[in-house]
């Protein structure tokens, strides 16, 4: 089948996945032992208020009715309200408030990992078995094994002690920023503000992207090694193709193919890992919001957030398939590609 038919098929398959995910979320929320109304009321609410909340949340309706309401609500964009964290606030509004910082953080994580991990990997592959290759590879392996949150903790303390340890003050360098603080994303047209926003997010982005960086390095290296030793590169050389073209046109393009699932897989990770990193760096993003909502029992908000996340993940998978379709013409043919 053609590549686009293959892509279309993957697109269609996403729908049951989306439905399944939200259904699972609903199931966890409603079927779990936690009573949302009780959580909202707290331990000393009165019976009347409790009953009122149950009515408002529709908790006494038959289960299938609740399910329909839940699903239709989500899919039509009605994300409900927060009941515990910010009672009465529309969940959509809250998400819109918290999302920009997570997006900013995510963007830089992906970028940093991409632009450090892949070139390092390609470099290691081109100069394989040299000293720099060993150093880079080993560094990548260890970097990959580091827990996000631990790295974040270490980085925070290193940066706050930067004056004593390294002799220069991180907070004051270039632009004044704090280390453990949400970046201010207002007025990004102004270059100073932009720089401040980038700098404030940089440590968190490095941490969040760290495991992906390690992976991309390793895979990039392997991919380059495989392509360099392949027959078509030798055939191209036999045609007289010069070295530089050989590397850029023939090796890199083919080496990118196995990297695609990693790049998008990494974005997938951000969604989970951001909880830890945002907590340590005190960035009020979606991950942080999710965590707070969960431990405070604000289940309606949790449900909506989970839906957003699932949507994101499915969307990312579609982007990944799209990239694959564009990059590898063999996709769909005898299982080549994905």
């Amino acid at each position: 089948m053609t590549r686009w038919r293959y892509f279309g098929r993957r697109l269609v398959l996403s729908i049951p996945i989306l439905i399944f995910g939200t259904t699972a979320t609903f199931w966890i929320l409603r079927m779990g032992p936690i009573d949302p109304a009780a959580a909202i009321i707290g331990p000393d609410g009165d019976q009347q208020a409790y009953q009122r909340i149950r009515d408002q949340l529709g908790l006494d309706e038959p289960l299938w009715q609740q399910y329909i309401d839940f699903m239709t609500g989500l899919f039509t964009g009605n994300l409900g309200q927060s009941w515990v964290l910010n009672p009465g606030t529309d969940a959509g509004v809250m998400i819109a408030q918290y999302a920009p910082r997570t997006i900013w953080l995510g963007f830089w994580s992906v970028l940093i990992a991409l632009f450090i991990g892949i070139p390092l990997g390609f470099y290691a592959g081109l100069n394989s078995n040299s000293w720099s290759d060993y150093v880079a590879s080993f560094g990548g392996i260890v970097w990959r094994a580091m827990p996000n949150f631990w790295l974040a903790v270490i980085l925070v303390s290193l940066l706050s002690q930067s004056q004593q340890l390294f002799g220069f003050n991180w907070q004051g360098w270039l632009v004044q920023t704090d280390i453990v603080t949400p970046p201010s994303l207002s007025n990004l047209q102004n270059p100073t503000n932009l720089l401040a926003a980038i700098k404030a997010t940089l440590p968190a982005a490095v941490v969040l992207g760290s495991s992906s960086m390690g992976n991309e390095m390793r895979i990039g290296r392997t991919a380059v090694l495989e392509t360099i030793n392949s027959n078509y590169v030798e055939a191209a050389k036999a045609k007289g193709v010069p070295g530089r073209t050989l590397v850029w046109k023939h090796v890199f393009r083919n080496a990118l193919v196995p990297l695609v699932p990693i790049i998008t897989g990494e974005a997938f990770l951000l969604i989970g890992g951001s909880v830890l990193v945002e907590t340590v760096f005190a960035i009020n993003g979606l991950g942080y919001l999710f965590f707070q909502a969960t431990i405070n029992g604000d289940l309606p908000l949790v449900g909506s957030l989970m839906f957003i996340f699932i949507l994101l993940v499915v969307g990312l998978n579609i982007v990944q398939d799209l990239l694959y379709t564009l990059i590898d013409p063999r996709v769909g043919y005898e299982g080549g590609g994905a």
Binding site: S230, Y232, A235, A236, A238, R253, R330
Partner: peptide
């Protein structure tokens, strides 16, 4: 000019 043994792998697939 040279022609190699396996035509599938001597052409760049992408």
């Amino acid at each position: 000019a040279m022609v190699f043994q396996d035509p599938l792998t001597s052409l760049n697939p992408v």
